[in-house]
């Protein structure tokens, strides 16, 4: 029923000498949404980026501990990072569409995976954009530059782009931070829809949003994972005082 998907064991992360994650251990389950919450700079993005090894790109960083996905340590020596990332979609904190057309933004991923048939690509474009709740707004200008879209539209385009390669796991770093309430609602509906197929980890500063969409919540503070559990429990009867203060502080 509840299938373990991702497991971190004593995960520590350093930017140079700076400890950004301190021995984080918890589980994330398949077809569930896990929310990461915590004050700014506590290491949420860092944690998310260790999951698809994006932090490998930053020189001078170091990882300790293990991350097991389906029981496989992704920091193992003979893991192919490229293939790993194909299966872990990511939506970045700042929307970052390519300076290409809307259509090309979506087809980029499938194309590098060797899909070149026009009909297939067309289909992927439509379904990805529909899933990200942006199809209606852009279907008449697929050949326009993605940089001409509004910030919220760009963010949804980036979600669509992440979905285009059919990942197993979706990492979302504040996907709704630039969105109006209507688009945010759409994104949240989308997350409900997506968790049928994906394992979703989402970072958010919006407590209501975390409560609405996530099944599990992890509270981070100063690089440590302070508390983790079912979302309802964390939001109603947290064990730790820090968690309660943070949540109520935000709730008002």
């Amino acid at each position: 029923m509840k299938e373990l998907k991702i497991e971190t064991r004593n995960l520590s992360f350093y930017y140079g000498n700076k400890l950004a994650l301190n021995s984080v251990s918890f589980n994330m389950y398949a077809n569930h949404v896990t929310a990461l919450i915590g004050p700014s700079g506590c290491g949420k993005s860092t944690f998310l980026r260790t999951l698809n090894r994006m932090n490998d790109l930053i020189p001078g960083t170091r990882v300790d501990g293990e991350i097991l996905i389906d029981g496989l340590n992704i920091y193992d020596k003979d893991i192919d990072v490229v293939n790993l990332r194909k299966k872990i979609g990511m939506v970045f904190q700042r929307s970052n569409p390519f300076a290409k057309s809307i259509y090309d933004n979506i087809t980029y991923g499938p194309k590098i995976n060797g899909i070149h048939k026009k009909e297939v690509l067309d289909e992927i474009v439509e379904s990805s954009l529909k899933k990200a709740a942006i199809w209606e707004e852009v279907k008449d200008r697929l050949d326009h530059s993605a940089l001409g879209l509004s910030g919220g539209q760009q963010q949804r385009l980036c979600i669509a782009r992440a979905l285009s390669v059919n990942p197993e796991i979706l990492l979302m770093d504040e996907p709704a931070s630039a969105l109006d309430p209507i688009s945010t609602g759409k994104i949240e509906e989308l997350i409900f829809e997506l968790k049928k197929t994906f394992t979703i980890i989402i970072v958010t500063h919006n407590m209501q949003q975390a409560a609405r969409v996530s099944d599990y919540t992890a509270f981070f503070y100063m690089g440590e994972m302070v508390e983790y559990g079912k979302t309802k429990k964390i939001f109603t009867t947290p064990d730790k005082k820090q968690t309660e203060e943070y949540i109520t502080g935000r709730f008002g």
């Binding site: 698809n52 994006m54 790109l57 490229v82 293939n83 790993l84 990332r85 194909k86 299966k87 872990i88 979609g89 990511m90 970045f92 700042r94 970052n96 569409p97 390519f98 300076a99 980029y108 991923g109 590098i112 995976n113 980036c158 782009r161 992440a162 285009s164 390669v165």
Partner: peptide, 14 residues
């Protein structure tokens, strides 16, 4: 922007 390359790499591009 670095974010372009990041987006591409995150999609599994080499």
């Amino acid at each position: 922007p670095e974010t372009y390359s990041e987006a591409s790499l995150a999609l599994g591009a080499t």
